[in-house]
Design a protein around this nucleic acid. Structure first.
Lengths: 129, 129
DNA sequence: ATAAAGTCTCCAGTAGCTAGAAGGTCAAGC
DNA sequence: GCTTGACCTTCTAGCTACTGGAGACTTTAT
């Protein structure tokens, strides 16, 4: 498979597949004489793995670790779990932050009548705190 | 006030104050003969306004708009409200996304016993979907 | 007079792509 | 054989909002 084909199958832009190759995340299996990247089914599986990992918000570096563990038959599942747990913590932190923000913003949006007059509690809040 | 003083008062790193000057968000009031940036109280107020806006997640561009509206006495509060409403929508979208993610990750983390054996439902999920 | 602290500009790096330019390659059709 | 078009290559630059550091100048304190 060349890059166009594998991109379609992995449901990733070719640009992204090339980027993953550049950063050494999923390298092409080989190259044709003319320099085209070639990929096999194993690489496809990895790319899909990475797409799903990225969709869960794992960083490229985490993806690298997860991919290594995925490949390593003598892994300890605790290592995988640890990475996922850390991600979960991040998600929870972000959730808490956004929930607070949502409350604040909702309050402000509701307190402003949004007409053609200049009076605005939103601006006042940003100004006076 | 020079940049160090205003940074302290605005509770922003000097680097950031300089950056805001560079992108034309909050420009220094003037310069000394030797080239030092100088700021007055009005600029301080703007910097604090920007810090609070950024803390609410508004982009630099939104901050520019908000600052313009803040300065403009003939503004319509509807314009401010619109910007805040859009931000609220973004926050709500992100919240929904993270809540879904949290559920998925929690499930995975709980399903993995995390011992020294290789079997791992997390990796399986990332592999098989 | 000198040392320390403050400030200046400019360059590079962060994360994870994405867009575009300039060019080489390959298969199909005429 | 030649052209067209789709594909591929590398390289550079841009996105967001800073942040770090180098090298040089200024101000302040002792």
């Amino acid at each position: 498979m060349n890059i166009g084909e594998i991109s379609k199958r992995a449901e990733l832009p070719t640009k992204t597949v090339r980027y993953y190759a550049d950063v050494g995340l999923v390298k092409p299996t080989g190259r044709t004489v003319s320099g085209y990247r070639t990929y096999d089914d194993k690489a496809l599986r990895k790319l899909i793995f990475v797409r799903r990992s990225r969709a869960m918000g794992f960083s490229i570096d985490d993806c690298r670790k997860l991919l290594d563990l995925f490949e390593n038959q003598t892994r300890a599942s605790s290592e995988v779990r640890e990475i996922a747990k850390q991600r979960l913590t991040e998600v929870n932190d972000k959730l808490a932050e956004l929930q607070t923000l949502k409350k604040e913003l909702s309050m402000l949006v509701h307190s402003c009548n949004g007409d053609d007059r200049p009076d605005c509690p939103i601006l006042e809040a940003l100004d006076r705190g």
